[in-house]
């Protein structure tokens, strides 16, 4: 990564942080409904992996903590925010909400709200890529707790036995909702579970974006070269509760402080300052510019966009005017 790339990445991570914080505020103001799962603390994961992949070319699928993943694939943050506001201009036309951001144009294949649900879908995307002979890869971002679903085991097995081009990224943030990993999971190092399926796997620090990037380059290259699936475990931490309905009381202040000391944005920022590639003032003005941009462009777009039309409530349930429903042209 050259200096310009590093600065851009830092900006993107900071943008994601501020975007999510703004979601928090809008939720408190009751402008966003439903469940809201925020990403602060884990930014180095998606940013590091997507820097090594080809956003908009490679297919990405994830769970319900999905806003930043969508944006990193190329989704317009305005449309993501409008989706949270339930507006017609939202990325899923207000029909999905926070847990179901989709941007198929940028090959972000969606956020899904059944834990572990995307595993087989990601394998299926890999199967389609293989059948169609493309050079894309399928990337599945999920948390550690998803690995306790049967779909994890079924999908890793199929991906391995059929050598599918799937990169499984496990963002191990140590908690499944409020239950800490030791209390739910017999083997805590998740990459070992992938090894059980003969899948190439690694575990690295998920707070250091350069470490993530280097590990992801290797993983992406492995998958793209047709060798089969790869499992990359990233050790990370989420600052907020599982969702907005969870104050995170199951964690100690000390534990949280320890992780905040290794905040992915701060770590990267300090490193860039040390290398003389950035000044504290640069960072502050970048931060200010991001906050202003979100307030100026993103929020007003979401607030001022129209609601979906009531008469279109039942649109998108089935295909419209599909001739085969009537038995084709006969």
């Amino acid at each position: 990564m050259n200096a310009a790339d590093k600065k851009r990445l830092l900006r993107e991570m900071l943008y994601a942080r501020r975007f999510e914080e703004r979601c928090y505020e809008a939720y408190v103001e009751r402008k966003i409904g439903g469940f809201l799962h925020l990403y602060p603390g884990q930014e180095a994961c998606v940013h590091g992996v997507m820097e090594a992949a080809k956003p908009g070319h490679d297919y990405v699928i994830t769970g319900y903590r999905d806003h930043v993943h969508a944006i990193q694939c190329g989704a317009d943050p305005k449309k993501v925010m409008a989706e949270l506001y339930g507006k017609e201009t939202g990325s899923s036309k207000g029909r999905g909400g926070s847990m179901h951001i989709f941007d198929v144009e940028h090959r972000f294949m969606g956020g899904y709200a059944l834990v572990g649900g995307p595993f087989p879908l990601a394998a299926g995307i890999g199967k389609a890529i293989k059948l169609q002979g493309g050079d894309e890869i399928s990337i599945c971002f999920l948390g550690d707790a998803a690995n306790n679903q049967g779909s994890f085991h079924e999908s890793l097995n199929m991906a391995a036995v059929w050598e599918l081009p799937v990169l499984f990224v496990c963002e191990n943030n140590l908690y499944g909702i409020g239950t800490r990993i030791e209390r739910s999971t017999a083997v805590q190092e998740q990459y070992k579970r992938a090894c059980g399926y003969g899948i190439e796997a690694a575990r690295v620090d998920g707070q250091d974006i350069e470490t993530v990037y280097e590990a992801a380059l290797k993983a992406v290259d492995y998958v793209r070269s047709g060798k089969g699936p790869y499992f990359l475990e990233l050790s990370t931490y989420r600052y907020r509760g599982h969702s907005m309905s969870d104050a995170g009381a199951y964690r100690t202040k000390e534990e949280q402080q320890e992780w905040i000391k290794r905040d992915p944005i701060n770590l990267f920022k300090e490193r860039l300052i040390e290398a003389g590639e950035l000044s504290e003032e640069d960072f502050q003005s970048l931060d200010k510019e991001i906050i202003e941009q979100i307030d100026r462009d993103v929020i007003p777009f979401a607030e001022e966009s129209p609601e979906p039309k009531l008469e279109e409530l039942e649109k998108y349930v089935l295909a419209e005017n599909d001739p085969w429903v009537k038995g084709g042209a006969q």
Binding site: Y59, I61, A123, M158
Partner: peptide, 16 residues
């Protein structure tokens, strides 16, 4: 069953 059905569904997203 859930795994391969899901795999088929995922492949259909890309036109399979």
């Amino acid at each position: 069953e859930n795994g391969y059905t899901g795999l088929g569904i995922g492949s259909s997203f890309l036109g399979v």
